[in-house]
Design a protein around this nucleic acid. Structure first.
Lengths: 233, 233
DNA sequence: TGACATGTCAAACGATTGTTTTAATTATTT
DNA sequence: AAATAATTAAAACAATCGTTTGACATGTCA
């Protein structure tokens, strides 16, 4: 019986097969998702035997989980949530950076985009691998956005209005994750590559800031001083 | 050799097995998606034999396509895109109805929600059945929203700003399609049932209207009279 | 009743999948 | 060089899937 190497320990990089499996798996998983991906196709692309995945990673699910972490670190290393913006910058500037980094991670090409594509599928069909990702990366991201929006609105991060505005901001970003198919069908004039990041990020930031600065208040909330009171028909 | 009935002709409703297969398939497809769904599970729930799907529908894909149309008609019959709003109502009111109907279709329970759940998966993993759906239902919806937003912005429906604002509006709605999993993990205080429709629809409409009425203009666009000019840092 | 189309059923087919086995090969250490 | 561990390779295993088959039941119409 073969003893498999303990996964999790930092393997020497010279382990070429293992690394090529990761790279091949990234392309395949990002393209067709966890369930549709076949170990045979991954191994074919990696130039390895069918048994290679089980030898190096144990099983398909572990390979997937390890890849999700790998691609996440790669994407956030290149595009951190606030890019280079200083911690004491005005919240409007932080929001712009948050949005731009989000889109940059989506529209980058090759291995950087793996994480986004895998996340799109995790939303609809979560894997066990999602749990640790939420705790380590996604929850801090959510808290960061909450604090930015809270500062812009002048409210507590736990406020309902803050939560709803976070949804509004994030939703406009993930939209270009999930709905690429539909966008290119219904709006073929919309570019969906790296050149689209600046105009889209600019729009989302402007749209959201304009909304938050001029949001009328429903009955249950207090008005921000200076903003117009209620516009209804 | 058995001759299968021509699918597409309006079958007499007394065909009990066929109808029960549709109902069972709706639950299964909406729950686990096309690929994860098994004919055996569908037939089990319908109380039918494994061969029933092939006899009544030809194959799994045809059953899925027929169900997608079936569930779409059901959902839009109950919640049309503008609900009851008059054709000459102000665009702000139409936008509110558009958003509300969208969320109602998402958060309704049972068979009405099938369509939304199936669409979530179609976004990430399109089926051939999507093509006709786009032409018959989704494109008219997109054109409707485009005309509403164009009227609010006072621009042509082909204007880039109109397109981007359509994205912003729709994205906030479909967000509650795709990201339910993540929302309930990161914001467990957010309700995600029918009782959430009114507050969410209200927020999305207010947020979007406030944004569109106070949107500063980037270089490439003309300013709307009365709105503040540019706010950048 | 007999002929025939319609619908249902149990069983099997053929293909694909993740995984395992077992032997051969390569690399490393003694 | 010999011995031992690590890695690769071909083949098969076991399970699942969509689909088909052919027998059987049911209903309809002559």
């Amino acid at each position: 019986m073969n003893l498999k190497p303990l996964s999790g320990v930092p393997a020497p990089v010279q382990d070429a097969t293992r690394h090529q499996l990761l790279e091949a798996a990234g392309a395949v998983f990002a393209e067709v998702g966890f369930r549709n991906a076949t170990i045979r196709e991954i191994c074919r692309r990696a130039g390895a035997n069918v048994a290679a995945v089980n030898y190096h990673f144990g099983d398909k699910e572990t390979l997937y989980a390890e890849l999700l972490r790998y691609s996440q670190q790669k994407a956030f290393a290149k595009y951190p949530p606030l890019l280079g913006v200083a911690a004491d910058a005005p919240p409007e500037e932080k929001l712009g950076a948050f949005v731009r980094s989000f889109l940059l991670r989506i529209f980058d090409e090759g291995s950087i985009a793996w994480f986004g594509k895998m996340m799109s599928r995790e939303m609809v069909e979560p894997t066990r691998a999602l749990d640790s990702l939420v705790a380590e990366r996604l929850r801090p991201m959510a808290d960061l956005l909450r604090s930015i929006v809270a500062e812009i609105l002048g409210r507590s991060p736990q406020d309902e209005a803050v939560r709803l505005c976070c949804f509004s901001v994030v939703s406009q970003c993930v939209f270009y994750h999930h709905c690429r198919t539909m966008i290119s069908r219904l709006f073929p004039e919309q570019r969906l590559d790296a050149s689209a990041v600046e105009p889209l990020a600019g729009h989302i930031a402007r749209f959201s800031l304009a909304a938050m600065k001029h949001l009328p208040d429903p009955e249950t909330q207090r008005s921000k001083p200076g903003s117009a009171r209620r516009r209804r028909h």
